[in-house]
Simulated scan of single mutants.
Amino acid sequence: MPPDSAAGFRSRFSVERMLRIHERLRDGDAVNCTQLAREMEVSRKTIQRDIDHMRDRLGLPLEYDRAAHSYAYTAPVEAFPTVQMSEGDAVALFVAERALEPLRGTPLFDRLRATFDKLTANLKGTVDITADDHDAVSFRHFGEGRTNAAAFDALQKARDQHREVTFNYRKPGAESATEERRVRPYHLTHRDNLWYLVAYDCARAALRTFALPRMSEVNLTRTRFELPADFDPSAFFSSALGVVEGKGDFAIHIRFAATVAHRIEERDWHESQRLERRRDGSVDLHLRLSSLVEIERWVLGWGDQAEVLAPTELRNQLAQTTAAMAARYN
């Protein structure tokens, strides 16, 4: 991220913090830097800078009460001072709002949407914000997964409080049979258009990935756990095409026909990918994965425009699958 973009990103979140501080002060709550820092998960110095900015740059009637060890407004303040934004800032804000769609149906979506409403309510002056601007950008994913809002809320709470959870889980392919799981929630991720939980399975003593739509009766227990300091979600998924982790180490080599080469080149499919354009216009894609489950399905989606050259195991799997498909359609 360029330095100017990073600064803009940070400034938007400082505005959000200041709006929250303003609401607390307006409602007559005692505002303490230490308490606010804990609630907003930032440093005490960051909160102090926000308050100093509100008082010294925005001209808000803020004073520190030494006896109460807190800040308060010395005069009524109904509206937060106008936030000036450029056209580019406004577009970025609305794009970010539309990008929240994967969270729709979860309590987190409602909270974030309310925050955006508070921010946009104060955007006047340099840019006119209208309802039509909301329709300028949209996000749509084919096969978007259904959100299990109840499970998402419970798992997020369990993750924040470091509490084990139990739930009934339906394995893929099982029509109605479920089994109870007890896990330690580590991470929630939205991948391949579906929400997943990465958790430590207590009975299996190993990390597992669970799809939220397959969960039911999610309950928080009183048992607490410590999140391992070495757990890294990025590293956990580094050798997976999507969410399926394996124990193998496969060097994938796929050749795509010239007719679809540009479609392969215009996307980042995996962090390990390496592309080689050939003289005939075709392109070779090289990946390093720990499982062949997802890559087989993906290659099948390209039909006769893709040929797996390695590994042999994947070629054999595709040969069997396509033979079975041909037999069915014949």
Rank of each mutant, 00 (worst) to 15 (best):
P2F: 05
P2W: 04
R10A: 04
S11M: 11
R12L: 06
V15G: 00
R17A: 04
H22M: 05
R26Y: 10
R26W: 07
G28N: 12
D29H: 14
N32M: 10
Q35P: 00
L36C: 12
A37W: 02
E39T: 10
M40W: 12
K45F: 03
D50K: 07
D50A: 07
M54Y: 06
G59I: 11
L60G: 00
L62A: 03
E63V: 13
E63H: 14
Y64L: 15
R66N: 11
R66Q: 11
A68H: 06
A72Y: 08
A75S: 13
Q84F: 10
S86F: 03
E87F: 05
A90T: 05
V91F: 05
F94D: 11
V95T: 07
V95H: 01
R98A: 09
L103I: 04
L103N: 04
R104D: 03
P107D: 09
F109G: 02
R111Q: 08
K118L: 09
K118C: 11
L119W: 02
T120I: 15
L123R: 01
L123E: 03
I129N: 01
T130M: 12
H134P: 00
D135K: 15
A136V: 12
V137F: 15
S138Y: 13
H141Q: 12
G143D: 08
R146Q: 11
A150P: 01
F152Y: 15
A158S: 14
R163V: 13
V165N: 02
G173I: 06
R182F: 05
R182H: 15
V183N: 00
Y186Q: 12
H190G: 02
R191L: 14
Y196I: 10
L197P: 00
V198K: 00
V198L: 05
D201E: 11
D201F: 07
A203S: 15
L207E: 10
L212K: 02
R214Y: 03
V218C: 11
N219T: 12
R222E: 06
T223E: 10
L227E: 09
F236S: 03
S238K: 13
S238P: 01
S239C: 10
L241R: 02
D249W: 05
H253D: 13
I254M: 04
A257C: 07
E266Y: 07
W269Q: 10
Q273I: 12
R274P: 00
E276S: 14
R279Y: 04
D280F: 12
D284R: 06
D284Y: 04
L285N: 02
L285M: 14
H286L: 14
R288T: 15
L289R: 00
L292T: 02
V299N: 01
V299M: 07
W302Q: 02
W302D: 02
D304I: 15
R315D: 05
R315T: 11
N316L: 14
Q320F: 14
T321R: 13
M325K: 08
A326I: 10
Y329M: 08
